[in-house]
Design a protein around this nucleic acid. Structure first.
Lengths: 160, 160
DNA sequence: CTAGATGCAAACAGTTTGCAACGCC
DNA sequence: GGCGTTGCAAACTGTTTGCATCTAG
């Protein structure tokens, strides 16, 4: 398991998507996809981080291309876009290989963890019926404070 | 019930907050607060909307002041800040007079409705224990498509 | 070839900031 | 009167766009 096991699958999916849509198979698109799926399953990143990494690896590309490609990947269902903080950069994460999950975020150290609670679907269903609305997706983020000693930047701890 | 019943309460709360923090009781702060609480309970607004309204009523103020004041109100717990869309402006809503609730948003007409499902607290509690984290607050937004005929801009409807 | 993609830089929107003028305490 | 607030405009950040250049099909 040196190579990420999903690369083959997502590459195929990108192939198909580009095919169907009549888009082109550019080097940038495949390189970016590979980079995204080279990391561990639950890696979060933003547009400029991604660009940095690729440039450091010797692959030059512009921000415009990064944004274009990320948007295309979202459309293809290959990644998800998140908007956690206020005016901070949008975060992206892989969809393939990371099951459905929501996020919990530490306000002190900024760390993002994931959890999956099936009850959110019950809520979705109830509200869906209530409002006669087809729910396409949801965003659930819990904000809080770690009580672990690992948490850097902690200010509001109640250790006394 | 011509006047909003909460104005008195929130004014008092602002008084106390400013008092405790040693901040000043400026006209801007009270005028903005009054404007916010003059609308119906579940009104959403953004910074420039708020400024527009006040200027149209003859009260001139700068964006800087609007942002400063909104931040102060958030700190005082008088309003809540939301970030629904991608790079759209932050939305604000009153806290006093609108109970705890979450939001459901129609992707077609952009309408935002509110709901309250107590089960979200059960999830909060579970995840809180699971991750040893004190949850301060959460954000739950359901995105979907109205099935009502009222929905403008509907594209993806399945009416056939 | 040629339409679609890219790179670059300029444009953009929302928000923040620096500094002089103002006004609450 | 002095310091917190405001106004203004300029700075900033993340993202988008226009246009010339390039390249996959």
């Amino acid at each position: 398991m040196n190579k990420n096991p999903h690369i083959e699958a997502v590459t195929l999916r990108l192939n198909q998507f580009l095919e169907v849509k009549g888009y082109r198979r550019t080097q940038e698109r495949y390189t970016i996809l590979e980079e995204i799926y080279a990391k561990n399953d639950h890696h979060h990143f933003d547009a400029s981080e991604l660009r940095e990494t690729l440039i450091q690896k010797g692959f030059h590309l512009s921000m415009a291309t990064v944004y274009n490609t990320l948007e295309l990947f979202v459309e293809a269902g290959l990644i998800k876009k998140h908007q956690f903080g206020g005016q901070a950069a949008s975060h992206y994460e892989r969809t393939v290989g990371s099951g459905q999950h929501d996020h919990i975020l530490c306000l002190d150290c900024g760390f993002v963890k994931e959890f999956c609670d099936p009850r959110i679907h019950t809520i979705e269903k109830t509200v869906s019926d209530w409002f006669s609305t087809d729910i396409a997706y949801h965003s659930l983020v819990l904000y809080g404070h770690c009580t672990e000693e690992l948490c850097k930047n902690r200010i509001t701890k109640n250790v006394n």
